[in-house]
Simulated scan of single mutants.
Amino acid sequence: MSDVTIYWRPGCGFCARLEDTISAVRERATWRNIWEDDEAAAFVRSVNNGNEVVPTVVVDGQAHTNPDPGLVLAALADS
């Protein structure tokens, strides 16, 4: 089973594309809004050279910046 956390923010087109792609299994992921969660925003900056690039997705402890939605879908489908 894959552990998936998705860091996102409202108004992000890449986040919306990811959410649309994984809609059937979206509840299997943990979603963290970086505009409402200071710890989440700090994590995203820590893995993106100080930038708040979203979506940042952590799959089994490995961070992926703006990953291919298929990668996230595959990880969640295995959950």
Results as ranks from 00 to 15, higher is better:
Asn48Val: 03
Tyr7Ala: 03
Ala40Arg: 04
Ser23Lys: 13
Arg26Thr: 08
Arg32Thr: 00
Ile22Lys: 01
Arg28Ser: 06
Glu19Asn: 11
Tyr7Gln: 00
Val58Tyr: 05
Val47Asn: 06
Gly13Pro: 03
Trp35Phe: 13
Leu73His: 10
Cys12Leu: 04
Asp60Gln: 01
Asp68Val: 08
Val57Trp: 03
Asn51Lys: 13
Glu19Phe: 12
Gly70Cys: 07
Leu71Arg: 10
Thr30Trp: 06
Gly61Ile: 10
Glu19Thr: 10
Glu52Gly: 01
Gly70Arg: 06
Pro67Leu: 14
Glu52Tyr: 01
Asn48Cys: 05
Arg9Gln: 13
Thr30Ile: 13
Gly11His: 07
Ala74Tyr: 00
Thr56His: 00
Asp60Leu: 03
Tyr7Ile: 01
Val58Arg: 03
Asp3Ser: 11
Thr65Ala: 13
Pro69Thr: 07
Leu71His: 09
His64Gly: 05
Asp38Glu: 14
Asp60Lys: 03
Leu76Tyr: 05
Ser79Cys: 12
Gly70Lys: 09
Gly13Thr: 12
Arg45Gly: 02
Ala40Phe: 05
Ala41Arg: 07
Asp37Asn: 15
Val54Gly: 02
Val53Asp: 08
Trp8Phe: 12
Ala16Thr: 12
Ala29Cys: 15
Arg9Ser: 04
Met1Arg: 10
Asn33Ser: 11
Asp60Tyr: 05
Val44Thr: 00
Trp8Ala: 06
Val54Tyr: 05
Asp38Thr: 13
Glu19Gln: 15
Val44Arg: 06
Val53Ile: 14
Gly50Arg: 08
Glu19Ala: 14
Trp31Ala: 00
Ala29Phe: 14
Val25His: 03
Ile34His: 07
Pro69Cys: 07
Asn48Arg: 06
Ala29His: 12
Asp20Leu: 09
Glu27Thr: 15
Ile6Glu: 01
Phe43Met: 11
Glu52Ser: 09
Asp20Pro: 05
Arg9Lys: 10
Gln62Leu: 11
